[in-house]
Simulated assay, not measured.
Amino acid sequence: MTYLETQYFGFNRILLLALGLWPYEQSIFVRLQLILLYSILISFIIFQFTAFVTLKCSVQIVIEICSNAFFFIICILKYNAFSFNLNTVKHLLELLQHIHDELRDKDEVAIIENYWIIANRVNGILALLGLLACSSPLCLPYIVDTIYFTNESQSSPSLHITTEYFIDKERYSFFIRLHSNAAIFISLTALIAPGTMNIMYFIHVCGMFKIASYRIEQAMAKVNLETNKTKGRNMVHIGIIYAVDMHRKAMHMIQLLMSALNMSIFIFFMTAVISASLNLFRIFQEITSGCNIKKLILPSLFLTVIYVYLLLANIMAQQITDHNNDVFVTAYSVQWYEAPVHIQKLILFLLQRGTKHYYVILGGLFVACLEGFGTLITSSVSYFTFIYSTNRI
């Protein structure tokens, strides 16, 4: 794993090491690090729900607490899904290295490396957005106080996260803020690190589909029955076999990844939709009731992070579907009719497999694609409408 780790996975390695999730570094110290980060996240969620003990429950309080807590729950779900599947992550990394080592054609190497470059650029953009998201809860309260409360004493601007630690909040305010800020930073990192790693996997699979298409084109380009009939047939036959083998390996990788994360991602999506609905309601309520700018920071941040994450996940799944379809479009578009009969039978076999589109399906119910993203947005808006209508009764 030395070559790929240094050349293309350095950024992913740093992020996963920060969370104790890099599969090649699992020492006792890393285990303790994992326990510490889990403890910070879980305790912060618990201290949010303990607010129900001391506060008088109302619909407003319930929505405010749940909208915040559910965001941290989806972060810990993502963290948990990755930490419990480190063997699968390691196996996939080894498969990537093995597939790269098998490539001999310089054009095929150029194709897969081009896809890795694209993946690193996407991850770089996500890292910048993640840094901005992590710094927003820390900086925006001070900026808002500077702009709107210049004549008031605001010694410790804070985020509006309702918690109950059962201690003196004024005396231990520094430690409370430290705990909340650490939980936000860990949560956002827990979304970005596994997410960027999954992007590397998905885009690499797209590159493998592209190589399969390239091999079909190159194989059919070698059809030359007039000059060397036997040799031409053999080269075409071998080329088609290599193309089918690459397609099979790509399908195996995506199925291996989805089988490990399938149910956890499905639960993540459903929880994210609920969290988005609650935060959408909070934003709408604040805007209609006077627009306290500081109270808009967190729900706006959480809603944006959720929608961007869901969008990227569905775009990646859509790319898998499109690249898989391109393999069969290529098989249909080449001059297969000029090939020998037994080669035509191989092409026909490919075309028959292409009659049924492949989709990334989560939990056996949800189809991940751009249309699926629209469904998720519609669902979150529908739940928001329901909460708003029932709250007015």
Rank of each mutant, 00 (worst) to 15 (best):
S158Q: 12
A339G: 04
H204W: 09
Y201A: 06
A250H: 03
I267A: 14
G364L: 08
E338M: 11
Q218C: 11
D101V: 06
L188R: 00
L32I: 09
A182P: 01
M316D: 05
G374P: 05
K169I: 08
E25F: 04
L159V: 12
R233A: 08
I14M: 11
V205A: 14
H357I: 12
L278E: 00
Q352E: 13
I35G: 03
I361N: 10
F149E: 11
L159P: 00
L312H: 04
E5Q: 15
I343C: 10
M200E: 06
A212H: 05
K295W: 04
S67G: 15
I347E: 02
K56L: 07
I99Y: 14
I42G: 00
A331V: 05
L188N: 04
T271I: 10
P299S: 09
M270E: 10
F268P: 02
R171L: 14
L346A: 14
I73Q: 04
A368Y: 01
N181S: 15
D245E: 15
V244W: 03
Y172P: 03
A317D: 03
D107W: 02
M197S: 04
F9H: 02
S39M: 11
I65A: 00
P141Q: 07
Y142Q: 06
I112P: 01
R392L: 11
N292L: 12
I45G: 00
F268L: 13
W22C: 01
F349S: 12
I125V: 14
F166I: 05
C369R: 09
K169G: 02
Q48A: 05
D105I: 09
Q60W: 05
N181T: 11
E102T: 12
A183N: 02
I167D: 03
M235H: 07
Y358G: 00
A260N: 10
T6Q: 15
Y38D: 11
K345R: 15
K210M: 08
D168T: 05
H204N: 12
W336L: 05
S135E: 09
F149G: 01
A276P: 01
T321M: 12
F166D: 03
C291L: 14
A331L: 05
T230D: 13
L296V: 08
Q26A: 07
P157D: 02
Y38I: 07
I238M: 09
C75Q: 01
E170R: 12
V360Q: 02
S156N: 12
L350Q: 13
L93E: 02
N80D: 13
I46M: 07
L311K: 01
S158C: 08
M235N: 11
G207N: 05
I306W: 01
V381W: 04
T385E: 06
Y388A: 13
N181R: 09
F29L: 12
R31E: 10
P141D: 04
I387F: 14
F9T: 00
Q154F: 04
E25V: 11
V62P: 00
L376A: 14
D101E: 15
R215G: 07
F44M: 14
